[in-house]
């Protein structure tokens, strides 16, 4: 019985991760602007992988393999947001239609709420 509880818990985690990555893929193709798409893609890099790997850890139980999976989670949560941040930084520097797509600190709020 307890095996089934553990298994279903892990299955819920893994399926949740798959759903999140599905949403991320959907968002990646739905949005038009690079920063919006990056937001969707970064969700897949962090939350989806976290849920899937947590599910695998729950299935595997406490062992060295689980520790390694946990280290993978830590590494990804360190590395992925930083790379997303750098990409977004580059986009802000380079993009020519930034003003059309998002609200800059200098702009007034009235213009963006109308559009």
């Amino acid at each position: 019985m307890s095996e089934w509880i553990v298994f279903s818990f892990a299955a819920i985690l893994i399926i949740g991760g798959l759903l999140v990555s599905l949403l991320a893929a959907f968002g990646l193709f739905k949005f038009r602007f690079a920063l919006n798409r990056m937001h969707a893609a970064a969700m897949c890099d962090t939350l989806a992988i976290l849920l899937v790997l947590l599910g695998l850890i729950v299935i595997n139980g406490a062992s060295l393999l689980s520790l390694k999976l946990g280290l993978i989670i830590v590494l990804l949560w360190f590395a992925s947001p930083v790379s997303s941040h750098l990409l977004a930084h580059m986009e802000v520097i380079v993009s020519s239609k930034l003003k059309d797509n998002c609200e800059l600190p200098g702009q007034e709020e009235g213009g963006s709420s109308e559009s």
């Binding site: 590494l75 360190f78 590395a79 930083v82 941040h85 750098l86 930084h89």
Partner: peptide, 12 residues
């Protein structure tokens, strides 16, 4: 370089 990148790189 970028401060976030530098901080993370120092750890990683």
């Amino acid at each position: 370089g970028d401060i976030i990148l530098t901080t993370i790189a120092r750890v990683l």
